[in-house]
């Protein structure tokens, strides 16, 4: 199961890297005579309204579909893990202050804020990535903090303190390895959240200029073709779902391995 899930993500990553060489057509090349045609030997998933090849556009969209969510996941996980460790290990006023902020941020209607900020400020995915980092980090902080609170009382942490190690070293060299499965799970969840949120933004027509080969935008732009070439809209929707599903399930597994007795 795990291998299959990893394989799905690997395949999409491969498509993102090698997409330009694999694509049978130029993703922007129009063939108006062949607009909104169904699947054929020449166009496996047919064409969109402008006669652009759906397979080529899916391949072209893979790169941005993966790159930005990976960026969000890396940033969120690094920040969330550091602040969570700090909050849980140090406790005191740092913890109290951070938890107030976290409670507040978690209560925010996040996607609403995201749509409005990106829509009003414009400028592609830049603001979206920043806004998502702000919105996703609090959840990570809370999870890492609660685990740190438990780990810091265990014998090995006690021993490290007795040896007189600096708190920074204890947090990152001793506690962090024991939280690894959770950190991985958090990263995968952030990745999924960002993937779905960005695709959703494009679907709403917020963030990207029309005509960009992007999965979310393809779902939206080809929505009117459901009776002529449904694949033009359903294929990108299915891809988003499959990638999101694979990442979520992998994350679930990492969480479970943590709850079944920590690191193997």
């Amino acid at each position: 199961m795990r291998a299959a899930l990893t394989a799905v993500l690997g395949l999409v990553a491969l498509a993102a890297l090698a997409g330009p060489w694999l694509a049978p057509y130029d993703p922007a090349a129009q063939d108006l005579a062949l607009g909104a045609a169904g699947p054929s030997a020449a166009h496996w998933l047919g064409t969109d309204e402008m006669g652009r090849d759906v397979v080529s556009r899916l391949l072209a969209g893979a790169r941005s579909a993966l790159f930005w969510p990976v960026l969000v996941a890396l940033f969120t996980t690094a920040l969330g893990t550091s602040l969570g460790l700090l909050s849980g290990y140090r406790r005191g006023w740092v913890d109290a202050l951070l938890m107030r902020v976290v409670d507040l941020a978690i209560a925010m209607p996040g996607l609403l804020v995201l749509i409005v900020v990106v829509g009003v400020l414009g400028g592609g995915y830049g603001w979206a990535v920043l806004a998502m980092a702000v919105l996703f980090t609090p959840g990570d902080i809370r999870v890492v903090r609660s685990l740190t609170l438990a780990q810091r009382e265990l014998a090995y942490a006690e021993a490290a303190r007795t040896l007189g190690l600096r708190p920074g070293r204890i947090m990152f060299r001793h506690l962090l390895p024991n939280l690894a499965p959770t950190v991985v799970a958090n990263a995968l969840l952030s990745f999924t959240g960002a993937l779905v949120a960005l695709a959703g933004l494009s679907f709403l027509g917020v963030g990207l200029p029309a005509g960009t080969p992007d999965w979310g935008l393809m779902v939206e732009e080809n929505r009117q073709l459901l009776d002529l070439n449904p694949w033009a809209s359903i294929a990108p929707a299915a891809l988003i779902t499959v990638v999101a599903c694979a990442a979520t399930l992998l994350g679930d597994r990492a969480f479970e391995s943590m709850s079944k007795g920590g690191v193997r």
Partner: peptide, 21 residues
């Protein structure tokens, strides 16, 4: 699990295609 993983806009498109179109 399946219902939880599918984004609402993707599900909307599938429902539109299946039950409306």
């Amino acid at each position: 699990l399946a219902a939880l993983s599918i984004p609402s806009f993707a599900l909307s498109i599938l429902l539109l295609y299946g039950f409306a179109v």
